[in-house]
Design a protein around this nucleic acid. Structure first.
Length: 801
DNA sequence: TCGTTCCGGGG
DNA sequence: GTGTACGGAACGA
């Protein structure tokens, strides 16, 4: 089939806003597109009804957008108006309407002829050799071939295809270490689209065996012929490692659907640095015909909305999502190869668990990106690793303008107006009871819609039209998800669509504020108008809440925490939220987002909440830190629970009990250790050691580790002699030693200065000294702890009326 | 101590 | 066109 780039609409086309959202070509089941600059495209589709795979070879007219035709004038008769030219032979142009700078849509049968002609003309005009279209900067819009194809055709991936119909394969390398130049692959676990798993292994530690292992993997991929290849950190580890090993061993790495001996590369901000140290060029690998999907990207994207993965590591994520099997095998990274030598079966189980978890995470979190690919003219794998503003909204706008026959504005850097941000207030610190969180859902997009705040240069009003359409679709998707049976594929896909739409809607504001070098229609004035309205809404909300008798605690654009009087019931709380919500601008909805028995407000975005069900929620660096010692965390949790239930004697008891346990060494060594990341190599530390000794490295050396890799994490503690020591995590090895030779008084001091200190806002200084008086101290003038009451201190209201 | 830069992950 | 998250930790004066 021949697709041309005129983008002319038929008379019976659906409403143009629908086309802006979804494209217009209904071709179902596209699972991968690979296009070349010469106008050839490969399309792989799954027939939704049968699941059969078809491979279609197509031609399209590669196209560019230019701000002038001057550089093509030298073609003479070779450049023809698309309206009158014969369809195939020549280079066509079409002038788009409206004021945008990029107003000439030019296309050719072979894109190379087009770019060559353009570069020739530009070189003459500029009297300098122009080698690449990118050198012409913003006077040209040149998309990657696949995106040219999708924009021109109005096609998108995955129409009428459910996520579960995709053929997804996972593989995971087990290697002797992290450095592909030095270490090798000894095992690859594989999970097939059928759900079957297999473990491939090198027979010995020779190059030939590793080469054979890679060859077997390639063969398995070709046989299984998946649409998608997935793993956790696939682009950051497995593919670069595989690529390096395959080059070194001179093994073909034909993982794609077109016969090529190597993976291709594309520039990618979030990719890996290339071998040559030439200034920060980063790439990701491409296997034409398959989509290479990294579940780490999914986790990052998901976390933007939910914020709360303790770690983005595979095991932690799987546990947090509740998909880790109870008998899941765990092996510490640096022990995998040595475990394999002693107990290969254990490593086989471990590696298989990895691919199983990746498949489950992908199914749980991958829907949003999948749904984005159903609307956006980009490859699925590119949508997986981009931000929504430049990665989704910009391509949607480009397609919308071309479809409407409208010229596109070029990027504009902005007039120097600074971008003003959101407001954040801390109204009080200390302990409050009967706390309510009121939340404004999607404040910024709601303000954009309510006040019609869009980019000044968006003459079609496409951004606001997209946001309106996306919000409506989202409400619809949410309703459909609710109506579908829990756990069903149908519910899954509606929820995924809803999540995708939320991502795009919420990034509409980010699109405005991103700055003109980044997004085509960026508009700092419009962005400032949105934040100004947002501050107005927050101020109004706070004033009106206060006028109804609540005590304000903390407020920002996400929502407001406040405490209500003792006599109030839940329905009083709801009534007040509804009353205040009714005073807010149209489309801005205030919801009661949470109710808590008590809160310790420490600093902005740093607080502890005790739910009515007894659940403790900690937020902010003061209360949760990956470096903190387990004994301190345990004390803090207990103390906070008791503090928030009013049991001040209990707080002191917890403090004394912890000191007692330290002194009798009832606390495990592991529980006083802290996790640190080694950022200096052994050589670097050797150099700086004379000047300054650092506990973690001293600990490594003292425990006989003379080598380590930068980035390794170890647990260290301070011994009674004041020296650093390392200790293993007990889960790793149940026979791990537990010497309990830690520096007791050091950890007693740390308990007070670091952990008890985080409760300081709850008390007057005098009462704090009573609650946390040292056990050896004589209680001369000390009044009884029983009399101590927690306090709430109002703070100066900087900038708040 | 503060301000700035870097990192997240993989064996 | 590689595209500007975000929050915590480490680094550097």
């Amino acid at each position: 089939m021949q697709h041309d780039a005129s983008l002319k609409r038929a008379h019976d086309a659906p409403p143009i806003e629908e086309e802006w959202l979804w494209g217009w070509d209904p071709t179902p089941g596209i699972v991968s597109v690979h296009a070349e600059q010469d106008g050839r495209a490969h399309v792989w589709r799954r027939i939704p009804e049968t699941g059969a795979l078809v491979h279609e070879r197509e031609r399209f007219r590669p196209w560019l957008l230019l701000d002038r035709l001057d550089d093509l004038a030298h073609l003479g008769e070779g450049l023809r108006d698309a309206a009158t030219a014969p369809p195939d032979e020549t280079i066509h142009f079409r002038e788009l309407e409206g004021p945008g700078a990029l107003r000439f849509l030019v296309s050719a049968r072979d894109g190379r002829a087009l770019t060559d002609a353009l570069l020739t003309g530009a070189s003459r005009r500029l009297d300098a050799r122009v080698r690449h279209v990118a050198e012409l900067g913003d006077s040209v819009l040149a998309l990657p071939p696949e995106e040219q194809y999708l924009v021109a055709t109005g096609r998108t991936y995955f129409r009428a295809l459910a996520f579960d119909q995709l053929h997804r394969m996972q593989f995971d390398l087990e290697t002797t270490g992290l450095d592909a130049r030095r270490d090798r692959i000894f095992m690859i676990s594989v999970r097939y689209p059928s759900g079957d798993t297999e473990v491939l292994e090198a027979h010995d530690e020779s190059d030939a065996s590793e080469a054979e292992l890679i060859t077997t993997l390639v063969q398995r991929v070709r046989d299984a012929n998946p649409d998608v290849i997935e793993n956790h950190n696939l682009h950051g580890f497995d593919l670069p490692f595989l690529d390096t090993r395959a080059r070194f061993l001179r093994v073909p790495l034909a993982l794609g659907r077109v016969r090529e001996r190597k993976l291709r590369q594309r520039g990618a901000r979030r990719g890996v640095a290339t071998g040559d140290p030439s200034e920060g060029r980063r790439i990701r690998f491409v296997a034409p015909g398959r989509e290479l999907i990294d579940t780490l990207d999914m986790v990052r994207r998901y976390d933007i909305g939910t914020r709360d993965f303790a770690s983005y590591g595979l095991k932690a994520v799987a546990r947090q999502l509740g998909i880790a099997a109870p008998d899941r095998e765990y092996i510490r990274g640096d022990l995998i190869h040595e475990t394999f030598r002693a107990d290969p079966e254990r490593v086989r189980r471990y590696a298989t668990d990895d691919v199983e978890e990746v498949a489950a995470i992908s199914r749980m979190l991958g829907g949003a990106t999948y749904a984005l690919a159903q609307m956006t003219p980009r490859r699925y794998e590119r949508l997986a690793d981009t931000g929504a503003a430049t990665g989704v909204i910009d391509p949607l706008l480009v397609r919308a303008y071309l479809r409407a026959g409208a010229a596109l504005p070029a990027h504009e850097p902005g007039d120097g107006t600074p971008h003003s941000g959101a407001a954040l207030y801390l109204f009080a610190s200390g302990v409050a009871h009967r706390v309510v969180k009121a939340d404004v859902a999607s404040l910024y997009p709601s303000l954009m819609r309510a006040y019609r705040i869009g980019p000044a240069r968006d003459r079609l009003g496409a951004l606001l039209a997209l946001v309106d359409g996306l919000v409506e679709r989202r409400l619809d998707a949410k309703a459909r998800a609710r109506a579908a049976p829990p756990g069903s594929a149908e519910r899954h896909s509606h929820e995924a669509m809803s999540a995708a739409l939320k991502i795009v809607v919420n990034s509409a504001y980010g699109y405005l504020a991103a700055g003109g070098e980044l997004t085509r229609f960026a508009d700092v004035h419009a962005a400032n108008e949105v934040t100004r309205r947002g501050r107005e809404v927050l101020a109004l909300m706070c004033r009106e809440l206060e006028a109804r008798g609540v005590t304000l605690l903390e407020g920002d654009t996400d929502g407001v925490f406040f405490a209500v009087p003792e006599a109030w019931s839940e329905s009083d709380e709801r009534r007040v939220v509804n009353e205040v919500g009714a005073l807010l601008p149209p489309l801005v909805q205030l919801e009661l987002d949470g109710r808590y028995a008590a809160m310790l407000s420490h600093e902005t975005k740093n607080y502890a909440l005790l739910g009515y069900d007894g659940a403790l929620t900690l937020r902010g660096v003061a209360f949760r830190s990956s470096r903190s010692e387990p004994y301190g965390d345990a004390f803090l949790r207990t103390a906070l629970e008791r503090l928030l239930t009013g049991d001040i004697v209990g707080v002191r008891d917890a403090y004394l009990a912890t000191i007692g346990a330290l002194r009798t060494r009832a606390i495990r060594t592991y529980d006083v250790s802290s996790r640190v990341r080694l950022t200096k190599s052994p050589a670097e530390y050797a150099e700086s050691r004379e000047k300054r000794r650092e506990l973690p490295y001293e600990a490594m050396l003292a425990s006989g580790h003379t080598t380590w890799s930068v980035g390794d994490r170890v647990r260290v503690y301070r011994s009674a002699k004041g020296e650093g020591r390392t200790i293993d995590t007990p889960d790793d090895d149940t026979t791990a030693p537990d010497p309990r030779d830690y520096d007791v008084e050091y950890y007693v001091r740390l308990l007070r200065d670091s952990y008890a200190e985080r409760l300081a806002r709850a008390f007057t200084p005098r009462d704090f000294d009573i609650v946390f008086a040292h056990p050896d101290q004589l209680a001369l003038f000390v009044s009884p702890v029983e009399d101590v009451k927690p306090i709430l201190t109002p703070l100066a209201r900087n900038g708040f009326g």
